[in-house]
Computed example of a mutant assay.
Amino acid sequence: MTSVWRSLADVPADLGPTVVTVGNFDGVHKGHQAVLTELVAAARARGAASVAVTFDPHPKAVHAPDHQPELITGIEDRIERIARTGVDGIVVQEYTLDFAMATPEEFVRDYLVDGLGAVAIAVGRDTRFGRGNAGDIETLRELGRQLGIGIDIVGDASDSHAGARRWSSTWVRELLDEGDLRAAAKILGTYHRLRGRVIHGLKLGRQIGFPTANLDVYAGFIPRHGVYAGWLEVVDPGGNAAAVSLVGERLPAAVSLGINYTVGTDDLRVEAYVLDHEDLDLYGARVALDLVEWRRPMLDFGGIDGLVSALHEDVAWCRSVLNA
């Protein structure tokens, strides 16, 4: 069971020696997983606890608040995916401008060694840390010598074939922008996930035989607009008694993500039609939406009849993709 701490003050005083890694871990893709797996192995070899330190909000959101980064995953999914690698603990450090003022030496000495009891640090080759991102691998090696702690450097991770591109969050975002959800899932090691709260919409879907759950998305990178096959899961009923029995159940869904040109809306909408659940009531519930495959872009079908015909085809395609 992985412990989650929201500050150094929450970390048990008797935790003992640790091996630590530090990163934003956006998406927790296979490259991140390689670092975290090495962290766990290095900690076990030393008889220490493995601890991953990550940040919330993302540092870019603090240093450039007018240019918020588009994160692949929200903090809930980041924590869940880090925990799956078997780490003993996760510190979700609140990132502030004051915190960012620590020099590389202060961060390693005061935060990691004195604060977390680190006897070793495991990181990827591209790690940067400390004020102005001034610290790099060579800085870390020198600090390791000064402080008497081990430094484990994990090489770039990629597919095994020659010339393979290294796994990265940038690559995942590119694939999501292209609508290549299958390729993105290979790098992430899981489906791309959106999280949102179900809200009231125009209720047009109910009138034409395709009632949808309209999501107010609060976490997850918005991929290429269009129609997707996916899985909807209720994670919190949010006071909706009708949704309680569905918590944790994965429901096959046809997902529309974008602007509905046919009915003249001009705002981004994320709607999920759960197959074979025409009377589903999820209002107020928080749900996760795992996107499996992109089918087509958002189109103007010229009227309701054309839209209904297209939706029948979309649902049939989703059944095939999801084997539902």
Rank of each mutant, 00 (worst) to 15 (best):
L15R: 14
V20L: 05
D26L: 03
Q33H: 03
Q33N: 01
V40T: 14
A41Q: 14
A48K: 02
V51K: 05
A52Y: 00
P59D: 08
D66S: 14
L71F: 11
I75H: 05
E76V: 11
I79N: 02
E80D: 14
V87R: 00
D88Y: 01
L97N: 13
D98L: 07
P104M: 07
E105R: 15
E106P: 02
R109H: 13
G117F: 07
A120I: 00
G124W: 06
D136Q: 07
D136V: 08
L140A: 07
L140Q: 03
R141A: 11
R145K: 13
D159C: 05
E178D: 14
I187K: 06
R195W: 03
I208R: 11
N214E: 09
G220M: 09
I222A: 12
I222T: 11
V235N: 04
G238L: 11
I259F: 01
G264V: 09
L280Q: 03
L282F: 05
G284D: 07
R286Q: 13
L289R: 09
E293Y: 07
R295K: 12
L299V: 13
F301G: 03
G303P: 10
G306M: 09
L307W: 01
V308G: 05
H312V: 10
H312S: 05
C318A: 15
V321K: 07
L322Y: 08
